[in-house]
Amino acid sequence: MILSVASGKGGTGKTTVAVNLALALGRSSRGSGVPPSNDGSSPRNNGHPPRGSGLPLREHGQPPRGSGLPPGIVLVDADVEEPNCHLFLRPRWKGRETITLPVPEVDLERCDYCGRCADVCAYSAITVIRDVVLLFPELCHGCGGCSLLCPRGAVAERPRPLGSVRWGRAEGLSFYHGELDPGQALAPPVTRALKARALGARGADLVIVDAPPGTSCPAVEAVRGSDLCLLVTEPTPFGLSDLTLAVEMTAKLDVPTAVVINRADAGDDRVDRFCGERDLPVLARLPFDRRVAETYARGRPAVGAVPGWEERFRELGERALGLAAASRGRGEKRCRT
């Protein structure tokens, strides 16, 4: 099960939601803290699909091969341009892997300057002007087309480092994050590698992905393939404008979508009306709480620090998992017919 937490607008509380959601679900799956409620009805569950049968978590599982991490909930910080979940979780790091992209290298002894490589490159990362071959590795997306299609076999590939993936443990969670190297512009390959590592961890029952803000390639890559995307917004004109864009993005990606309204007691009701018109379930309305802001400023999550918030995030998590399970069921039925 993959839950992504995204937003159009930056600063709405994605990281707060992702980190606290992971912590709250982790605590309830381990049986500490407040036990999960079995109450299927809720005054705020207005007509949304019923919850799944508890959390899809294994009590005992195999540790993932080679990573040194036990199974269960995996939190993935996919804002590789500026990861920040680790500031709140302070993980014990267990490993790190460099992520590279294959970029072209030309053997000028073999090259006859036909320009086929330049014709097929969608990003102008390789070009041939008369008898000059030029490489722009920072533009290369690593598709391998130039190497594959060179009639003279003159184009080889070399790995270009883009960033790294790190993993560790924090508060009973497995934690992965990606870091794009300074000066690099190409986030998606790092995000792809990060998600592959996190999803490949054996026993990764629930993967929560904290996506970057916006609706451009890094956000698309983070959200792609989720069972449910939670869009965190705030009831302001900016919040609504960017929520609208984000909803278009998840629709194109065919990812079931629900909304979390943060600082729900501020602003106006236009976000609510928009969600009603678009049939978007609002899974939580989180009030502004000065104590949460204060713990945030000290680099601590609200769960475990501010009374009442563990229950709030656990309830949000249960609704999200129920909705994701129901959407998944519908998706499978769609696929069979």
Partner: peptide, 21 residues
Amino acid sequence: GGGRGQGPREAGRGGRRGRRT
């Protein structure tokens, strides 16, 4: 502009992060 968020924490970075990658 870019596809990156417009909120207060993102202010001033839209241009740099607006590129499509």
